[in-house]
Nucleic acid binder design. Structure first.
Lengths: 238, 238
DNA sequence: CTAGATTTCTTAGAGGCACTAAGGAAACAT
DNA sequence: ATGTTTCCTTAGTGCCTCTAAGAAATCTAG
């Protein structure tokens, strides 16, 4: 309860950081299969079972490290956003999207871990650290899109043109956003998100290797398409 | 060399099938982690090490089963194509895309296994069964797009409008297709492929659960977009 | 038809994994 | 100073992949 952090708490915190560092090192150098409780413990200089005083299970360790990666990714995107605070909203959105890919290509192992590792039941719980960090990540672009919608609404399809079941889902999702985006704007946001995120996902999972050796211009082309969709390319600053 | 299959060969073939069936059963009922050499062997009724007479390693077994799934998926798509032989090419393309998702939603465990399981070095080799089966899968839609391009060319961007590095990659890829699609048409094909496949990938990896509970109308909406891109929605049959 | 080679399977075992149990030692709180 | 909490140890269970050595069944060739 006290603001004072005891010696024990400080030591524990330091050990936790050491554990995360060791796990990440193993992931980057030897792949996700090498991130075992035993190997991590060896790396930090304690014997296997000792690690259970920090995480109750292998799943929990994985979730904690994954949350770290999400937070780092989100922070990179937030930094890009804040670093272009004086630029137009459109440029800020593009900068954030580029930061998203930049982090992923600079940290392919971590990025692959985030997406390709199956989400265990424990980490699917909405109150898990992993889930919370994933939300923060998703939030960055969502917030910008909300602001864009407020200040300079982008073109949206007519709700009546969408099939009923899609309309219902969009309405429900819009409600979870406290109506900050109406359903048809949520549809546009989700379309953009899907294309960006899907493209990154496929790059990481090497599903496009048969055609592309360098995905950077492919991603840039995708960004140009999205900018057009959102009306960002007209020269008036948003 | 003889066309005659010996008794031993027949027995071996039957055992191989039994192994694949057992592995798939374990995957579907207990998840990918349950597909171990030992568990599969138990299921088939032999002891662990015996399975090494059929596959040299766990990786190889995984690759063989994955190839099965790819082949089944490709077959489902080919069947949709051939089952609509009298329909317009546009309808055939849409039928194939729907078959692709239909198989995936009917077999979520298998589909997830295909994409989310990391491709081990052994299975990355171009001569691996996995790779071969993956090629056949990709080929189905590519062939239809080639035919579409031949009979009713779809709109393409001007190559000069694409960045140089993208142009080079598209040219190289076009060459691997023996020029059946020029670079700018290959770009359109790859864009469509990326959006379809990326959407499925995200559905399988549950990356859109925060917004959608039923992806079917989302996929249909994506198909409508692609149809428009390819000029399939004009009523003249392609 | 029989003797050797091949294939298929067994058990035994090495080394690693996640995780539990039981206990010692240090740090802390009272 | 005493009792509690925390941290870490070793020992052990049962799983895993994969190797080794050998038995039994099957095929092949003289």
């Amino acid at each position: 309860m006290s603001a004072h952090t005891s010696r024990r708490q400080r030591l524990r915190q330091a050990t936790l950081e050491e554990i995360h560092t060791a796990a990440r090192k193993l992931l980057v150098e030897q792949g996700s299969a090498a991130v075992t409780i035993n190997a991590v413990a060896r790396q930090v200089g304690m014997s296997g079972p000792a690690l259970y005083h920090y995480y109750a299970s292998h799943d929990e360790l994985v979730g904690a490290v994954t949350a770290d990666f999400f937070r780092e990714l989100a922070a990179a995107m937030e930094q890009a956003r804040d670093g272009h605070a004086d630029a137009s909203l459109g440029e800020r959105i593009l900068a954030v999207c580029r930061a998203m890919r930049a982090w992923s290509t600079a940290h392919p192992a971590e990025f692959g871990w985030i997406f390709a590792s199956p989400i265990t039941p424990h980490n699917r719980r909405p109150d898990s650290v992993r889930h919370q960090a994933a939300l923060r990540f998703e939030q960055v672009l969502l917030d910008l899109m909300v602001e864009l919608w407020r200040t300079r609404p982008f073109p949206v399809p007519d709700l009546a043109d969408l099939p009923a079941s899609l309309r219902e889902q969009l309405t429900a999702y819009s409600a979870t956003l406290d109506g900050r985006l109406p359903p048809e704007a949520a549809h546009v946001f989700l379309s953009c998100w899907t294309r960006l995120y899907g493209l990154l996902c496929m790059e990481v999972l090497h599903q496009l290797d048969f055609a592309y050796t360098d995905m950077e211009p492919v991603y840039e082309q995708c960004l140009r398409d999205l900018a057009a969709t959102l009306g960002l390319d007209s020269h008036a600053p948003a």
